[in-house]
Amino acid sequence: MIVHERPWDDPAGERLRAAQRVEMAERYGTDDSDPSTPPTAADVTVFVVAQDDAGEPVACGALRTIDAEHGELKRMFVDPAHRGRGASRVVLAALEQKARDLGWTRLVLETGTRQHEAVGLYESSGYNAIEPFGPYVGSAWSLCYAKEL
């Protein structure tokens, strides 16, 4: 598996994010389960797409700057047909390295109460539960995590 940094509007990334929105709508029964401002090309600092050995885009993830030392992990997603093969860990490791390269010392993230696989990934990767922050305060579906880099 190889991870490439891509522009936010990369067609492969757009397809993966569209699939993520469909899956989240199915899990939560609404198209509006994320209370945050949707990421855009203007505010995404880093966006990556992972490809399998055949070159097929299978996973993505992004970083959004909070301040000079902190960032937020956004839009982590692995195509369901490719889950269980380590793509999420590869993307997460790549994003954490990009964050370190930017001089960031901490990453935060929000995931949902119905995303048990994501919770397992983050907890097993050293992320600790934190109080909801920013737009996630008061959200019944939000679980927030942080990791010191």
Rank of each mutant, 00 (worst) to 15 (best):
Y28S: 09
D53G: 13
A41F: 05
E72R: 01
A50L: 12
P38N: 12
A87Y: 09
R89D: 08
P7M: 08
M1C: 06
I130G: 04
E23M: 14
C144E: 05
G112I: 07
A94H: 15
H116P: 00
F47M: 13
L95K: 13
F133Q: 03
D67S: 13
L73H: 09
K74N: 06
L92P: 12
G13T: 00
C60Y: 03
E69G: 12
L73R: 04
D9P: 05
A12S: 14
F133E: 04
Q97G: 03
K147S: 09
F77V: 03
L149D: 13
A146Y: 06
Y145F: 15
A140D: 15
H82P: 04
A25H: 01
S124K: 12
W8K: 00
V90E: 10
A50H: 03
A54S: 14
R27V: 10
E110Q: 15
D52N: 15
R106I: 00
G138W: 04
T105M: 03
C144K: 07
M24S: 10
L109Q: 02
D43F: 07
A50R: 04
V46M: 07
G138I: 03
E14N: 00
Y127P: 06
E69C: 05
L92V: 11
P35K: 08
L143M: 15
E131T: 14
P11R: 09
L149A: 11
G86I: 11
T65R: 15
D31F: 00
E96R: 12
A42N: 08
V137L: 02
S125K: 09
A99L: 11
K98G: 00
Y127R: 11
K74P: 02
G103V: 04
P132M: 02
S33W: 13
M1A: 14
R27K: 15
G134H: 06
V3T: 13
P39E: 01
A18N: 01
S36P: 02
L107M: 07
A140W: 01
Y122R: 11
E26L: 12
Y28P: 13
D43R: 01
P132G: 05
G112R: 07
R89I: 00
E26I: 11
V90M: 00
I66H: 09
T45D: 13
F77N: 06
G134N: 03
E26S: 14
G120W: 01
T105S: 14
D10T: 07
L95G: 11
A146T: 10
A118Y: 05
S142V: 09
Q97A: 13
H70M: 09
V90H: 05
H82R: 08
A12C: 08
G29K: 04
P57D: 11
C60R: 09
T65I: 00
E72D: 12
V3P: 01
L149H: 12
A18T: 12
V44C: 11
A87T: 04
A59I: 08
L121H: 10
P7A: 14
M76S: 05
L102P: 02
W8D: 11
M24N: 09
D9L: 10
G112A: 09
V119I: 13
P35M: 10
V137I: 14
H70L: 06
R83L: 01
S88P: 03
V119P: 00
I2Y: 03
T37F: 03
A18E: 08
V3R: 10
E131P: 06
S125Q: 14
Y127G: 03
Y136C: 01
I130M: 15
A19V: 00
P135R: 11
A25Q: 07
L73F: 12
L121M: 08
P35R: 08
A99R: 07
Y145A: 07
